[in-house]
Design a protein around this nucleic acid. Sequence first.
DNA 1: GCAATGGTTAACCAAAGGGTTTAGTGTTTT
DNA 2: AAAACACTAAACCCTTTGGTTAACCATTGC
Lengths: 120, 120
Amino acid sequence: MMTLRSTPTAPIDEDRLDLVFKALSDRTRRQMLAMLSRGSATVSELAAPFDMSLPAASKHLKVLENAQLVIRTKSGRVQTCTFQPDPMAHADQWLEHYRVFWNNRLESLKSYLEDKDSDT
Amino acid sequence: MMTLRSTPTAPIDEDRLDLVFKALSDRTRRQMLAMLSRGSATVSELAAPFDMSLPAASKHLKVLENAQLVIRTKSGRVQTCTFQPDPMAHADQWLEHYRVFWNNRLESLKSYLEDKDSDT
DNA sequence: GCAATGGTTAACCAAAGGGTTTAGTGTTTT
DNA sequence: AAAACACTAAACCCTTTGGTTAACCATTGC
C-alpha cells in the first residue's frame, strides 16, 4: 500500500526525522523515554533520577514533546507525560531500508558459527 | 545469543548511541548514507549533490565516521567512503525495546507487559 | 617542474544545545 | 490569607554545530 503523501521524501518527513533522531541522541532523554515506556509520569518524577535542575529536565521534556514522542496533559498543577510511539515508528521505518545490511551480516555470522561448530 | 558485554547499559553503549542518533539527526548525513547504501563513493561524489562547500560536506562525513557509520580508505589522493552498518544495528536494537508499542499494538503490548512483570 | 585535482586544516561566524540561577504563575494545602 | 508545591519563563553561560572562506598538503598529469 502506498503512502498518501504526494512525495515519499517530502521535507516534512525529513523534518520529523530530524526531530526524532535529535531527541533520541541524548541519553537523558532516552532514559526518560525508558521510564515513560513503563508508564506515564509527572515532570518531577521524570526529573528526579537526574543530577540536574528541574528546568534542565523540563527542557529535555520539551525536546521530546517537540518530536511528539511525549504528550503532556495538565491536571491541576501536575503535568502527566505520556509516551507517544508514532515518531519512533517513523524512525524505525527509515531504518528498515538499511536493515538488510546487518541482517545479511548476522546471517553470515550464523553460517560461520555453524561451520565452526561442525568442525569441533 | 547473549552479548559479551558485562553490563548491557554501560556508558560506552550510551556514548555510541549518542553518536549514532546524532549522526542520523541531520538530513544531509542521512542522504549521504542513502548514497553509500547504494555503493561506496569518494568524498567529492558524496559532496556533489549538496548545495554546500566541500569542507562542509567533509565535516558531515567526519560526523558519520565518528559514529563509525562510514569508514574511509585512502588510495592516492582519493578517499573512498564505505557504509558500515554496525552502529545502525545498535540503534535498531535500542529501538527494538519500543517496537512493541507500534507493532501489533495490543498483542505485543500484552506480551511486553508480561515480560516486564516476569522481570520483577 | 608546474599546474590541476582531491581533500583537509584553520579561522571565523551565527545559531542551537545543555546547563545554571532567579523569578514568576498557577494550584493546592493548611 | 499565607505557605508550600509543581512547574514554566527568562536571562545568562559556555560548548557544539553547521556553515563559510582562505590557505595548505598531497598526488597525479602534462
